[in-house]
C-alpha cells in the first residue's frame, strides 16, 4: 500500500510490525519478564471494522498478518495495534478504487 484496485476485486494486504511479543512465561517456570504483547490488531475500511484479531502470546515476535480485503470504493484503510502497556499504533493507507 498505497494501492489501486478495481471495485469488487479482492486485494491481499500484508502487515508486519516491530514488537518483541514478550510472552511472560517460559517452559522452565514462572515469569521471568512480565508479559508485553500486542493484544489487538484491528483493520477498518470505509469507517467500518473489517477484521479484528485478539492476539495471544502464541503469535510470533514482530507480528505478521496477511488478509484479504474486498475493494468497494476509494477510502482509507486504518490499521491499529494495541499492546499491553497501552501503546497504540495507528497507520492509515489510502486505497484508490477505480
Amino acid at each position: 500500500m498505497p494501492a489501486t484496485a478495481q471495485a469488487g476485486e479482492t486485494i491481499k494486504i500484508r502487515t508486519a510490525i516491530q514488537h518483541p511479543m514478550i510472552t511472560g512465561h517460559t517452559d522452565a517456570g514462572p515469569n521471568v519478564a512480565p508479559r508485553k504483547i500486542i493484544h489487538t490488531f484491528a483493520v477498518a475500511y470505509l469507517d467500518a471494522e473489517v477484521l479484528r484479531i485478539d492476539v495471544a502470546p502464541g503469535i510470533a515476535a514482530n507480528p505478521f498478518f496477511a488478509f484479504n480485503l474486498r475493494a468497494r470504493s476509494s477510502g482509507d484503510v486504518v490499521f491499529t495495534w494495541i499492546d499491553d502497556t497501552g501503546e497504540v499504533i495507528v497507520e492509515t493507507r489510502q486505497l484508490t478504487v477505480t
Partner: peptide
C-alpha cells in the same frame, strides 16, 4: 502450548472468502 488460544479472528459480514496468514509460536 502453555496457552492454547493463539488468536481469535473476528470477521466482518460480507467479507467474502477469508484468507489469513500469520506466524505462530509452537512449543
Amino acid at each position: 502450548n502453555p496457552i492454547p488460544t493463539i488468536a481469535r479472528f473476528h470477521i466482518a459480514p460480507d467479507t467474502g472468502d477469508v484468507v489469513i496468514e500469520t506466524s505462530i509460536r509452537l512449543r
